[in-house]
């Protein structure tokens, strides 16, 4: 966690743009939280034209009506202001790098308890408790 899926029209972003978006999403997420950078996963997937994408856990769908859609999955426990800054920051940076108008991008972020995810063989820490978690083992490549 977090896991950000960017649903994009086929061929709409170059590798350079995808890489820059991934770095920008990492900057936005980690700049508004205490998550280590290695937590941030970004995947770009081609849209299929249906206007919906299955939840990454396989139950239910997220619906969207824009050409570009960011489907996020984060740990629960952050305040509304932080969540809002992450949400808005992702869209802002995506639009800037992809060179698309704001009304072409939407974003939805679902949340679940940290204790429902295991990474590097350990249950994830609650938001704000990452330093101790990282200090007790390697995090990420």
């Amino acid at each position: 966690m977090p896991f950000y899926r960017c649903l994009i029209p086929k061929g709409s972003l170059s590798y350079d743009q995808r890489e820059r978006v991934a770095v920008a999403f990492t900057d936005v997420h980690c700049g508004n939280s205490t998550a280590p950078r290695s937590f941030v996963q970004v995947a770009f997937l081609n849209t299929d034209g249906s206007g919906e994408v299955r939840d990454s856990h396989g139950q239910g769908v997220m619906r969207y009506s824009t050409p570009f859609f960011i489907a996020g999955g984060n740990r629960a426990g952050r305040g509304e202001a932080v969540k809002g800054r992450i949400h808005d920051g992702l869209i802002e940076r995506f639009c800037e790098i992809a060179e698309v108008p704001r009304d072409q991008v939407s974003c939805q972020i679902s949340e679940a308890p940290a204790s429902w995810t295991m990474e590097a063989g350990r249950i994830l820490p609650e938001p704000g408790e990452e330093a101790e978690w990282v200090g007790h083992g390697a995090s990420g490549g």
């Binding site: 770095v23 996963q41 970004v42 396989g58 990420g140």
Partner: peptide, 17 residues
């Protein structure tokens, strides 16, 4: 198309209900 911490990723995600 897959990145972790802004770098190309080799990480798999198993997500389920």
């Amino acid at each position: 198309y897959g990145f972790r911490g802004g770098k190309p990723s080799t990480t798999s995600l198993v997500r389920g209900r």
